[in-house]
Design a protein around this nucleic acid. Structure first.
Lengths: 188, 188
DNA sequence: ACCTGAACACCGTTCAAGT
DNA sequence: ACCTGAACACCGTTCAAGT
């Protein structure tokens, strides 16, 4: 399929940071992080790779930061009603699903320096615990413990540590829920 | 500094997989994962990049797998005496230090498919719990929960989520220990 | 303002050749 | 057996130029 950019370049909807990030996420989800290149991303957007730099001046660095922000910033619903255990269980399930759905960005979530996204998420967890009557310090500890557990468990799942010493297959859903109970049960 | 490979190539100690992995780890620790290239690795070993392929036929893939195996395979001491809580606390402290010392390989630990290393580590944790009198299923859950927590927490630390909502600086050592108590306290 | 085209300095990897 | 040198098909990014 041959593109003819110079003919209809002015008639297309122009690029935007949002469209770029979404296209990048699609490439990562579908083909893996290693296949996310500026040239391929340009192709997906029907644009020359260099056009991306007009919207993301810091280039690929900024692109990867954007992916992390998009995936890792998913705060708990602080206004939710019910026991904090249930609120956090629901959040954890959703966050885990999100990380697994975008497993390709997990290595970026793990090491990119992007305080905003994870800090906001951790703060929302702490707030849920505070409203649930947990004191400041234990709430702060529990928020980080929970976030750490969910991220770490997602990492184990993605890696597919699918044997359990002997020959038992692992039911990840069950294991995640059980581990979650361990973490929540230890709070306070 | 100019190398003269053809002159003394035969007089040098020959390459080995071990030396290659160690040199690679040194580059990653010192300059970051992004600067680990086959050419630079060759330079560090005073060899042409292509010589590496003779020892690692699968090339860079195999190199990265080797790094993960080197860092992530650190089982607990199953023969250790004392309460299982103390044994696991000691292991967790050591494992965390190991991950932080090689923060550059953390993204690889998180997503490379390399069952052996992490599976062996998880199995050793389970064994410690079994010997401590914990039943099979809870021991299995706790082992994964603990491993997930340590990896996830190391990820949070590396990312430097150094604010805690308001303006409190984070003492990572304290926070890690407190979260560890949450996890261990929830076991059973 | 927004995008293109050519160019530069790098990559990983192959393959034939040297010792 | 072990390593080199040249080559290939890619990268990210710059920069001047087009509309």
């Amino acid at each position: 399929m041959v593109r003819q950019p110079s003919i209809n370049a002015q008639h297309r909807t122009p690029l935007s940071t949002e469209r770029i990030i979404e296209a990048a996420l699609q490439i990562v989800d579908g083909q893996g992080l290693g296949r996310l290149t500026m040239r391929r991303l340009g192709d997906a957007l029907e644009v020359e790779a260099m056009a991306i730099y007009h919207h993301l001046p810091r280039g690929k660095e900024q692109l990867l930061d954007g992916l992390v922000a998009h995936v890792a910033a998913a705060p708990a619903d602080e206004a939710a009603t019910g026991r904090w255990q249930d609120v956090l269980r629901a959040w954890a399930g959703g966050y885990r699903g999100r990380l697994l759905a975008h497993a390709g960005v997990l290595p970026l979530v793990v090491t990119r320096r992007n305080p905003a996204a994870l800090t906001a998420t951790a703060a929302s967890l702490r707030e849920v615990l505070r409203r649930g009557g947990i004191a400041e310090d234990p709430a702060s500890v529990a928020a980080h413990t929970l976030l750490g557990y969910v991220i770490g468990h997602a990492a184990l799942e993605v890696r597919g540590t699918n044997e359990d010493g002997a020959d038992r297959a692992v039911d990840w859903d069950t294991r995640f829920a059980a581990g979650l109970d361990v973490v929540l049960g230890g709070v306070r």
